[in-house]
Simulated assay, not measured.
Amino acid sequence: MFIAAINTIQVQAITYHSDALIGQLAGIVETLRETSECLAYRITRSDADPLTWVITGHWQSQAAMKAHFQHPALTELMGLLQCNVVRGIQLDSFVVR
């Protein structure tokens, strides 16, 4: 399995909402895993900040990663900002050379 690109999404929960947020995030990650061309998609809690969840996707091509950025589940993820459980979302992507 060759990984050509990686994306990360850091979701910072509002205090006291981190444990409740994992259920929503897990559903979004499962949808992305099942409906995109990812090699792997997972979610973990940050070791540095227990209020931050890190979602990571691994891709066989940069084009597949870019296409996934239009996925409706990512719109749902951004909608969490309006639900008063998320204080911030940071998106990053990397191309493996």
Rank of each mutant, 00 (worst) to 15 (best):
M1C: 05
M1F: 15
F2E: 06
I3V: 14
I3Y: 07
A5L: 01
A5T: 01
A5P: 03
I6P: 01
I6G: 02
I6T: 06
T8F: 10
I9W: 09
V11G: 01
Q12M: 05
Q12A: 11
A13N: 07
I14P: 00
I14N: 04
T15A: 12
T15W: 13
Y16D: 09
Y16V: 00
D19C: 03
A20Q: 13
L21W: 08
I22D: 00
G23P: 09
A26V: 00
A26R: 14
G27T: 02
G27H: 06
I28W: 10
V29L: 01
V29R: 06
T31L: 00
T31W: 04
R33Y: 07
E34C: 03
E34W: 03
T35L: 03
S36P: 06
E37I: 00
E37G: 09
E37M: 04
E37K: 13
C38W: 04
L39Q: 11
L39W: 08
A40D: 06
I43N: 10
R45G: 02
S46W: 05
S46Y: 05
D47K: 11
D47F: 09
A48W: 09
P50H: 07
L51V: 00
L51M: 08
L51T: 08
T52I: 09
I55L: 12
I55C: 03
I55R: 09
T56S: 06
T56R: 02
G57V: 08
H58V: 01
H58G: 01
S61E: 05
S61W: 01
Q62N: 14
A63M: 10
A64M: 09
M65H: 05
M65R: 12
K66L: 12
K66A: 12
A67S: 10
A67I: 02
H68E: 05
H68A: 14
H68N: 09
Q70K: 14
P72T: 00
A73Q: 11
A73P: 06
A73H: 13
L74I: 06
E76T: 12
E76K: 15
E76W: 10
L77I: 03
M78L: 10
M78E: 01
M78V: 04
G79K: 09
G79T: 02
L80C: 07
L80H: 10
L81H: 08
Q82T: 06
C83P: 01
N84P: 00
V85Q: 14
V86H: 04
R87M: 13
G88C: 03
G88E: 06
Q90D: 13
L91F: 15
L91K: 12
D92N: 15
V95M: 04
V95W: 02
R97M: 00
R97V: 04
